[in-house]
Design a protein around this nucleic acid. Sequence first.
DNA 1: CGCTCATATGTTGTCGACAATCGACCGGCT
DNA 2: AGCCGGTCGATTGTCGACAACATATGAGCG
Lengths: 245, 245
Amino acid sequence: MTGAEWPPTPIAAVQQVSLSEEVTARIREGIVTGLLRPGQHLREADLADALQVSRSPVRDAFARLNHEGLVTLRRHRGAVVVGMSAEDIEDLYSLRRSLETLAVRLAASRATAEDLGALRAAAAHVQTDSEMMRERQFAEADIRFHDLLYRAAHHDRLYACWSMVRPNIFRFLLTRNIANADYKAIFKDEHSALAQAVADSHPDAAIHLIDDHLQGSYVRLVRHYAPQPEDGRAPGAQERQTPLL
Amino acid sequence: MTGAEWPPTPIAAVQQVSLSEEVTARIREGIVTGLLRPGQHLREADLADALQVSRSPVRDAFARLNHEGLVTLRRHRGAVVVGMSAEDIEDLYSLRRSLETLAVRLAASRATAEDLGALRAAAAHVQTDSEMMRERQFAEADIRFHDLLYRAAHHDRLYACWSMVRPNIFRFLLTRNIANADYKAIFKDEHSALAQAVADSHPDAAIHLIDDHLQGSYVRLVRHYAPQPEDGRAPGAQERQTPLL
DNA sequence: CGCTCATATGTTGTCGACAATCGACCGGCT
DNA sequence: AGCCGGTCGATTGTCGACAACATATGAGCG
């Protein structure tokens, strides 16, 4: 009994999101969906105008997105949306493998009953309406499962590291069309097996599974990378064509 | 030829530090040295007054220190200096092992000649005036070596993760009196061997060395933890006795 | 006497404005 | 013609003030 879940009917606590977090989410959304293109210069005043807020929350959002690696922040020169190169995918996944290996090992010993239930539910949720899911929902479901995996590790700093990686993975999942039927089946099976290994407290098995899972995910991502045309940073002349948000 | 080092005489570029970074460094210094005690409530206005700046840089600093895990930030309730529990040490070192294992593996293949030179110099620097070094300098030298190790990996996001861990390790090194002659010799030997393995491009050997090195460091830290009296968060009544900075 | 509700206080979140700084453009000199 | 220095516009970094929120305090009631 953790004492945190009451009443039994899971009424989600109204999350009092700060305006900064809201702005951060909006801009992040714009970046991961591709509305804000790589190489595009983001001006605080413009974003503040577009979002009807002051520059302070926008400034705060830039700092957070910088920590997440979605924008680069140069002194007195503002924020620039970073591009996604093959090296980025490689770095992201090498880091993710290190982090997630630790996560599943810890989860295998620290996960509570609630954690395991949430994990199984997330893995099953992909199964239930697997056919009708659009790319966006599929990417969200995938991210959600791995997020629960990290949460089950009960390691705040590890989760903070994952929070830096997560938006980038989400961005990859959205831009590469990763959501076809084969992948869905693969993900469902692997997620379920992973949840089972964690539930059974078999860290070695779980580590092996997450390693294969991430390796496969990485391979599929780089396979989809080559046909992707013109993903580097824009030439610079046509940066301001798209509206800001 | 990287083209970044000229003239041959290494004139350090004057680093234009933002006021926010300066404030961040000051407060971080106060926390790691123990001037700002665990559990102490930090008010933006007080810090701003003490440092003769506005609240904006202090606010920015709080956000950074929150990312580093040195303070916790609660909505409308400000920042609180976090304590150092045995679980923190365990979590920090489990995370550090994952990160640094990846770092040395990458460094073994990506390190440039300059990286290796800096690594060897840092390892040797501990050797040269090993006897006269005070705890503070020793801790700085240790951190500096590992920092160079991460830099040699040329993995920005990995380095960002290390930047979150680093201040905490530094804090541990300062509060546990880790700087006696034996430890110095151990660190010198292990750092040198590590630098050599990286220089020889032997990732497996380097991984093994870093694993042992961190394991030994962890054991020494927890050994010094027990005799440490009253390190948890203060009872709350005597929080404001010490001056702010 | 204990509990609930309204008030009060202090702190943070947000805002608009000023000033410092950076990059670009232009004129003058070698 | 090429290079250097000065000036200008644009953008960010910092500031002080206001408003919103959370907690603490005290009165009223059962």
